[in-house]
């Protein structure tokens, strides 16, 4: 699936940034298994609906071993907890440490998945539109660097081919390869530096150094963005309130505490769960709408 096909990515950059900021913040700050599991579910479901099957398989190959590694190694390094399961090298392996490891693994995987979703939804143009308001010069440097990268890659290929045709390119041993590539790199540097000064001269000639410039941005804040922003704010406020009231407190040491199930705690879980699942819900909603509209033709 193409990046542009992610329906959630069509929101305004500010809205998206705020959404992911809140979600990551809560996920990093809580230890509560209910909240962490809902964050993980949100991450997995969004990944599943927006990625191809092949990419999903590759992601699973990365995340499953990481999950096992983090959860299984925690009891080896942490010996707190009141319920020893067995002893290894005279150190107790406790039930609490094991479950805490699973909890941490859920957290680590959830944050990684949400960061992955953030990277896919916030393409560089959106990030630059955000940065551009804060710091136009830095945004200029970043967007120029992003533009130079494909240019350098293309030029690199051209120089490599020229060197091969001239017979200067040796690939027999590791050091030959390094030396050959270093020579190509050197030629590339000369070309890039010279052309960068050309670019700078051209920018000056077009008045880049004059005052009163504005940052160009294609993104417009629509009513849908407003609704999404309001929804995110409301859900985050409820979650924050619940966390600050201690409704989502959870401790593993010395003994595992019970999951809070009073009415306020359930409201907190529901609010955060909805927040975490928002991109997935939106994605499914848009897909269904598309199917429905197509069926009418």
């Amino acid at each position: 699936m193409n990046r542009n096909d992610i329906a959630f990515a069509r929101f305004h950059p500010t809205v998206l940034f705020f959404y992911f900021f809140c979600l990551i913040l809560f996920t990093v700050f809580t230890q509560n298994p209910v909240l962490l599991l809902s964050a993980l579910c949100g991450g997995i479901l969004f990944c599943a609906v927006t990625n191809t099957a092949k990419k999903n398989l590759a992601a699973a190959k990365l995340y499953v071993p990481m999950f096992l590694l983090v959860s299984m190694t925690n009891p080896i390094f942490s010996h707190s907890g009141a319920t020893p399961l067995f002893f290894m090298n005279d150190n107790p392996v406790t039930l609490e440490a094991l479950l805490c490891g699973v909890d941490l693994a859920v957290q680590v995987c959830a944050v990684m998945l949400i960061c992955g979703a953030f990277s896919r939804v916030m393409e560089s143009d959106k990030l630059l539109a955000l940065f551009g308001k804060l710091s136009p010069r830095l945004a200029t440097v970043l967007s120029m660097a992003l533009r130079f990268i494909p240019l350098l890659k293309r030029k690199w290929g051209e120089i490599c081919e020229a060197q091969r045709a001239l017979g200067y390119f040796r690939e027999e041993s590791f050091f030959d390869r390094i030396a050959s590539y270093a020579r190509v790199f050197s030629a590339l540097v000369t070309w890039a530096l010279e052309s960068s000064v050309d670019t700078a001269a051209s920018m000056s000639a077009r008045g880049y150094e004059l005052a009163g410039k504005k940052h160009f941005s294609l993104f417009r804040f629509t009513r849908g963005d407003g609704i999404m922003l309001a929804l995110t704010t409301a859900l985050s406020a409820v979650t924050l309130f619940g966390i600050l009231l201690g409704k989502a407190d959870f401790d593993f040491y010395p003994r595992i505490s019970e999951i809070n199930t009073d009415i306020f705690a359930i409201i907190t879980y529901a609010a955060f769960g909805t927040l975490a699942l928002l991109p997935f819900i939106f994605e499914v909603k848009e897909a269904l709408k598309w199917k429905y509209l197509r069926s009418k033709i």
């Binding site: 200029t140 970043l142 130079f148 000064v197 700078a200």
Partner: peptide, 9 residues
């Protein structure tokens, strides 16, 4: 500015 962008890239 442009030189920095080139080094970055």
């Amino acid at each position: 500015l442009v030189l920095l962008a080139v080094m970055l890239s």
